[in-house]
Simulated assay, not measured.
Amino acid sequence: MRSELCIHDLGTGETSILLTHEGIIEAPNWHPDGFLLVNGDRRLFRVPLDAPRLEPVHTGSVGGLNNDHGISPDGQTLAISAHDSNRKSCIYLMPLEGGEPRLVTAEVPSWWHGWSPDGGRLAYVGVRREGGPVSLYTCALDGSDEVCLADDFDHIDGPDYTPDGRWIWFNGEKDGHVDLWRIRPDGSGRERMTDGDTVDWFPHPSPDGAQVLYLAYPPGTKGHPANLDVALRLMPADGGEGREVVRLFGGQGTINVPCWAPDSRRFAFMRFVP
């Protein structure tokens, strides 16, 4: 499988390939200083925009990274998700330049997905009872004050804050269908934001707060598999009809984590070539 790290420009409507890799790389983040972060082979890599190449990021004693990672609002810290000795996902924080990660979540499994705009809380999903659903949580940066915002879905994934901090978007499965939802950080005001035929995952509000990027799977898709014909869609941040901006071969790994450029005019994503 060949991976293509791509950038889509909303102004021109054009998609360019920044980097091609023989193998699987996934889940790009965009740092304001002009580089992307991606996951591959259970490791984290930096990709400079001006000289694209995979530069390993040192993660100390923590290995086995999955593709749920992201950058703090001040650009100085990374959140990563990796498996513990029991093969359950934990969340860690570490310096941007690399170093020894610090464990955040004592409760496992937990998968990171979002950072509050003030830098004070993390949004993530996790399982807290045997056989229970994957539910939506937030906590402080030291792992304290874990709050469950929603646990009445069959499955939740992809929580991401709006830039004003007023909402957390997520995808939630109810009655066998996955749609996008948003909820206040205190757990109030929950709203369903999509209700079409597509199976909608991984919503990412743009940095200017105007729109939300998400991944649309074909009707009837179960979970968030790789290797399908999927679409990237945009919808207004206050709700409304989504529009397709990119069609591609991908799915899992395409936009699992926040991927917008700071200017809100571009976003990064992964597509794959068998």
Results as ranks from 00 to 15, higher is better:
R2D: 03
S3D: 13
G11V: 07
G11K: 01
G11I: 06
E14T: 10
S16T: 11
S16W: 09
I17E: 12
T20C: 14
E22D: 15
G23H: 14
I24S: 08
I25C: 08
E26M: 15
E26H: 11
P28H: 14
V38I: 11
V38G: 09
D41V: 06
F45E: 00
F45L: 02
R46I: 01
V47W: 00
D50L: 08
V57C: 15
V62L: 05
V62F: 03
G64L: 09
N67M: 14
D68C: 05
H69D: 03
H69G: 00
I71Q: 02
P73N: 05
D74F: 02
L78Y: 11
A79C: 07
I80M: 02
I80W: 04
A82D: 04
A82F: 03
K88E: 14
S89T: 12
L93M: 13
M94Q: 00
L96T: 03
E100F: 01
E100G: 07
V104Q: 00
E107T: 10
E107F: 00
P109L: 06
P109V: 00
S110H: 12
S110Q: 03
W111K: 01
H113M: 06
W115H: 00
P117I: 08
G120P: 02
L122K: 06
G132T: 05
L136R: 00
C139V: 01
C139W: 04
C139R: 06
D142V: 11
S144L: 11
H155C: 12
Y161I: 01
Y161C: 05
T162C: 07
W167L: 08
I168A: 07
W169P: 09
H177R: 14
D179H: 15
I183K: 09
R184P: 06
D186P: 11
S188K: 15
R190Y: 02
M193V: 14
M193E: 07
V199D: 00
W201K: 14
P203F: 05
H204Q: 10
P205G: 01
S206G: 05
D208H: 14
Y217K: 01
H224A: 08
A231F: 12
R233T: 12
M235F: 10
P236W: 12
G239L: 07
E241K: 13
G242L: 06
R243D: 09
V245M: 10
I255Y: 05
V257M: 04
W260D: 00
A261W: 10
A261K: 02
S264G: 08
R265D: 15
F267Q: 06
M270A: 04
V273L: 13
P274W: 10
